[in-house]
């Protein structure tokens, strides 16, 4: 991601594309988009990833998380044709001084979350996936909270607190 943001590195982008574009297409098709539309939209999402690469902050989200939010917003735009209100961005600190160690710990926690997700009984995992594919209503989602989020929340909380402190 950093190579894309800093050097407009097309080879790094091609590697990212090879990993994510087919998954985004799969995600959108599971969400009900026809194949051709899902492909078009996956290209669009990846073009957005390139354009917004400089805004990516590895201490607060990993690449999959960030790409998920872009793909989700495109899906809402595409399938529901409505605006998606997003929270205010947290302002940057005085310098975009991103702590490598923080980014690494967050990555580890994120990997652990992924492992916890795949270790869930099939039925529970299916429910979570359905929620993100857009197949569950809010009421149905209320039945499945109490999810294996582990310590990811406290890592993110810490990152936000650091950012707030850097601002003042």
């Amino acid at each position: 991601m950093l190579a894309i943001a800093n050097q407009q590195d097309e080879a790094a982008f091609a590697a990212l594309f090879a990993h994510f574009a087919p998954r985004i297409k799969g995600f959108l098709m599971k969400s009900g988009a026809p194949a051709a539309q899902a492909e078009d939209c996956a290209q669009d999402v990846m073009a957005t990833v390139w354009r917004k690469a400089a805004m990516f902050d590895p201490t607060r989200a990993n690449v999959s998380t960030w790409i998920f939010t872009i793909a989700r917003n495109r899906r809402i735009d595409l399938l529901r044709r409505e605006r998606r209100p997003e929270p205010e961005d947290l302002p940057w600190g005085p310098e975009p001084e991103r702590d490598q160690a923080d980014a690494m710990v967050l990555q580890q926690e994120t990997d652990r979350l992924g492992e916890a997700l795949s270790a869930l009984p099939r039925e529970q995992r299916d429910l979570i996936e359905q929620a993100y594919f857009g197949d569950l209503s809010h009421g149905e989602i209320a039945q499945i909270t109490g999810l294996p989020l582990g310590t990811i929340k406290s890592r993110i909380r810490l990152a936000i607190t650091k950012l707030r402190q850097a601002m003042t």
């Binding site: 098709m29 979350l113 997700l117 989020l149 990811i152």
Partner: peptide, 24 residues
Amino acid sequence: RARMESFDTLGGAVIDSVEGVGLS
């Protein structure tokens, strides 16, 4: 915000586990 971003992280994990569909 921290809780929301942790749910986004779960969404990222779901994207990672989705079977990719071949592109043109």
